[in-house]
Amino acid sequence: MPTQRSILPPLIFGIVTTAILLSLGFWQLRRLEWKSTMLTEIQAGIDAPPQPIPAEVDPSMKYMPVAVTGRTTGEEILVLSGTKELGGGYNIISGFETDDGRRILLDRGFVTQDYRRTPRPPAALRVVGNLHWPQDKSSSTPAPDLEAGIWFARDVPAMAEMLKTEPVLVVAAEVGGDTQGVMPIPVSIEGVPNSHLSYAVQWFLFAATCAGMTAWLIWRIRRRTY
């Protein structure tokens, strides 16, 4: 029969490993609570009453609800995009001159492929939306195809340089005036990942597997005959 000493190393290893895996699972649950609270706060900020665009704007104001009135300039950037309901198309980023004389970027929303070349001359609009600094661009994002007039990500500084505006982007949620067939796509937290629950479940499953394998190994050792 095996000695107590021969059982001890795998038992200690199994207990320690299982404890570590369980602690990682509980850590992910704490992260889940933190992320859920953060998303709730972001949504509350998105839904807050709109205000005029501050004189000084910076990325810490991301999601701030604002209201602006003015005119589109007729200059625009088409960003390759798509929706579940309508399929592929483009986000229309227009130059926008506010009534108080500022030139900003306005993400008016979405058009399908069929409306890519539809003329959109200057139009007076009343817009309620949110300041935004999208993180669409990554190291693998292609450079804009300026010949075709198509961009592959919303890059605020580059778009502002292209349309000669401030590096300020308002994503429209509600538009009054001639929308010219552009459908607003409001800022939303739906695209913000919150996978901590699935990670927690994975760690707990690993812990259960480790505990089970440890119990099986101890059982085998105890039944081993020489």
Rank of each mutant, 00 (worst) to 15 (best):
M38E: 14
M38Q: 15
M38H: 15
T40R: 15
T40C: 00
I42N: 07
I42C: 05
Q43P: 13
I46Q: 12
D47C: 05
D47L: 12
A48K: 04
A48E: 08
P49N: 08
P49W: 07
P50Y: 07
P50H: 12
P50C: 12
Q51V: 15
Q51K: 09
P52D: 03
I53P: 10
P54M: 02
A55L: 13
E56S: 10
E56H: 11
V57S: 14
V57F: 12
V57E: 13
S60E: 10
M61T: 08
P65T: 05
P65H: 05
V66K: 06
V66D: 10
V66E: 08
A67K: 14
V68M: 01
G70Y: 08
R71Q: 10
G74I: 00
G74R: 11
G74V: 09
E75C: 02
E75S: 11
E75Q: 06
E75F: 06
E76K: 02
I77K: 04
V79S: 00
L80P: 12
S81N: 03
S81Q: 05
G82K: 02
K84Q: 14
E85D: 01
G87V: 04
G87H: 03
G88N: 10
G88S: 15
N91A: 15
N91T: 12
I93W: 04
G95E: 09
F96C: 03
F96Q: 02
T98F: 02
D99Q: 14
D99C: 05
D100L: 00
G101N: 01
L105A: 05
L106Y: 04
R108K: 09
G109A: 04
V111F: 03
Q113H: 14
D114H: 14
Y115L: 13
R116H: 09
R117M: 13
T118Y: 03
P119G: 11
R120P: 00
P122Q: 11
A123S: 12
A123G: 01
L125Q: 09
L125H: 08
R126A: 06
V127M: 05
V128D: 09
L131C: 04
L131Y: 05
H132Y: 15
P134C: 12
Q135C: 11
Q135V: 14
Q135T: 11
K137P: 02
S140R: 15
S140M: 15
T141F: 02
P142T: 03
A143R: 11
A143C: 09
E147D: 01
E147G: 13
E147W: 00
I150S: 03
W151L: 08
F152W: 11
F152M: 08
V156N: 07
P157E: 00
P157N: 10
P157M: 04
A160Y: 01
A160T: 04
A160D: 05
A160E: 08
E161S: 12
L163E: 00
L163V: 12
K164R: 13
T165E: 08
T165Y: 08
E166K: 12
P167N: 06
V168K: 09
V170G: 07
V170K: 00
V171M: 07
G176T: 14
G177C: 13
G177S: 01
D178C: 12
Q180D: 01
G181M: 09
